[in-house]
Amino acid sequence: MTEAAAPLPPARTPGRYAVALVCLGNICRSPTAHVVLARKVEDAGLGEQVRVTSGGTGGWHVGGPMDSRAAATLTAAGYDPSRHRARQYEDDWADEHDLVLAMDGQNLADLRAVSPGLAAEGRLRLFRDHDPVEPGGEVPDPYYGGDDGFEEVLAMVERTSDALVARLARAVAP
């Protein structure tokens, strides 16, 4: 069974599911995924059952807003990024989340180092393991590129979030 075909790990609390999205600084990729996934969860009527959070493996931007280019890309697509404030992934997230999704291989390796139990339980994966177009791919970091990189990330995040919401709906079904 491929990672993309692997079922979601079971909810720690029946009928509820907590997902954390993690990148390096929590200002571009993971907040984009957070805003999009949270909206799609709400639109699917799962807002009371599924909690979405995001953080970075590094703490450089804690408390700050997301990158202005990421925010502008989200706003242009009809999302509201204004409430995001960068957070850092903390060790206790391993016990609070049913699934932790890293944006790239280095984020995944960093998370394995600080939360080895998550990987052993199958609760630590790449975000794009759920991508119907390229399962297991990485979400590229658009920070040092142009606006088109942020648009590419948004397209990946939207289609992956659609697939993930369908799986989350099954995970919280009675």
Rank of each mutant, 00 (worst) to 15 (best):
A4S: 11
A4I: 10
A4K: 08
A5W: 02
P7H: 10
P7L: 09
L8F: 08
R12W: 10
T13G: 12
G15M: 01
R16K: 09
Y17L: 08
Y17Q: 13
V19G: 09
L21I: 09
V22A: 14
C23P: 06
L24C: 10
L24M: 14
N26W: 03
N26M: 03
N26P: 04
R29D: 02
P31G: 05
P31H: 03
T32C: 12
H34W: 10
V35Y: 01
V36L: 02
L37T: 13
L37E: 12
A38H: 08
A38Y: 06
K40S: 11
V41R: 00
E42P: 13
G45A: 09
L46V: 04
L46T: 07
G47R: 03
E48M: 12
E48W: 15
Q49L: 11
Q49E: 10
V50Q: 00
V50M: 03
V52L: 11
V52D: 01
T53H: 05
T53M: 14
S54N: 00
G55K: 00
G56R: 00
G56M: 00
T57L: 08
T57V: 08
W60L: 07
H61L: 10
V62L: 00
V62Y: 01
G63I: 08
P65H: 08
P65A: 10
D67C: 05
A71P: 05
T73F: 05
T73W: 02
T73N: 07
A77P: 03
Y79D: 07
D80H: 03
P81K: 00
P81I: 03
R83P: 15
H84K: 05
Y89M: 12
Y89T: 15
E90A: 15
W93N: 09
E96R: 15
H97W: 13
H97S: 15
H97V: 11
L99Q: 02
L99M: 01
A102T: 13
M103R: 06
D104P: 01
D104I: 09
G105T: 09
G105A: 07
Q106W: 14
L108Y: 07
L108P: 02
L108A: 06
L108G: 07
A109Y: 10
A109D: 12
R112F: 11
G117L: 02
A120I: 13
A120N: 07
G122M: 02
